[in-house]
Measured scan of single mutants.
Amino acid sequence: EADPRLIESLSQMLSMGFSDEGGWLTRLLQTKNYDIGAALDTIQY
């Protein structure tokens, strides 16, 4: 079963217009401990 923190973070990022095609966003959020800010910083640079 998916981590509730992942579901919450992923749904927030999907609502911002990101896609999780191929699961890349799920993996990114997992490596950033479900921190949306850290994930966005990684995507920006």
Rank of each mutant, 00 (worst) to 15 (best):
G23I: 01
D35G: 03
L40Q: 04
A39I: 11
G23F: 08
M16R: 06
L14M: 13
E8Y: 12
A38K: 11
T42F: 15
Q44D: 11
E1R: 05
E1V: 13
E8V: 12
S9C: 08
A38V: 09
L25E: 01
S11I: 13
Q30G: 09
T26W: 01
L29R: 00
D20S: 02
S9M: 09
W24R: 04
M13A: 04
D41W: 12
S19Q: 11
E8P: 05
S19I: 09
L14T: 09
G22D: 14
D41I: 15
R5Y: 07
D35C: 09
I43G: 01
E1P: 11
G22R: 08
T31P: 01
M13H: 01
G37Q: 15
D20L: 03
T42Y: 15
P4W: 12
A39Y: 03
M16E: 04
R5N: 08
N33K: 07
D20Y: 02
F18L: 07
T31N: 15
R27A: 13
S15N: 12
S19Y: 09
L28N: 00
K32D: 02
D41L: 15
S15A: 10
L14C: 07
T31Y: 13
W24L: 05
Q44G: 12
I36T: 07
L14Y: 10
L14N: 06
G23N: 07
L14I: 11
G37V: 13
A2K: 15
I36N: 01
E1L: 12
L25S: 00
A39D: 01
L14Q: 06
L6A: 06
Q44V: 12
M13F: 08
M16H: 04
W24C: 07
S9R: 03
Q30F: 10
F18G: 00
Q12R: 08
T26G: 06
Y34S: 04
Q12P: 01
Q12N: 09
D35A: 04
I43C: 10
G23H: 07
D3L: 07
I7T: 12
A38Y: 07
P4G: 10
T42R: 08
N33D: 08
W24I: 06
L25W: 02
I36R: 02
S9E: 03
A2E: 12
D20N: 12
D35H: 08
Q12C: 12
E21S: 09
G37T: 14
Y45V: 10
S15G: 15
L28M: 05
E21R: 07
E1I: 13
S9I: 08
A2T: 12
S15T: 07
L25F: 01
S19A: 07
L6N: 02
G17R: 00
T26N: 03
D3Y: 05
I36F: 03
L40F: 07
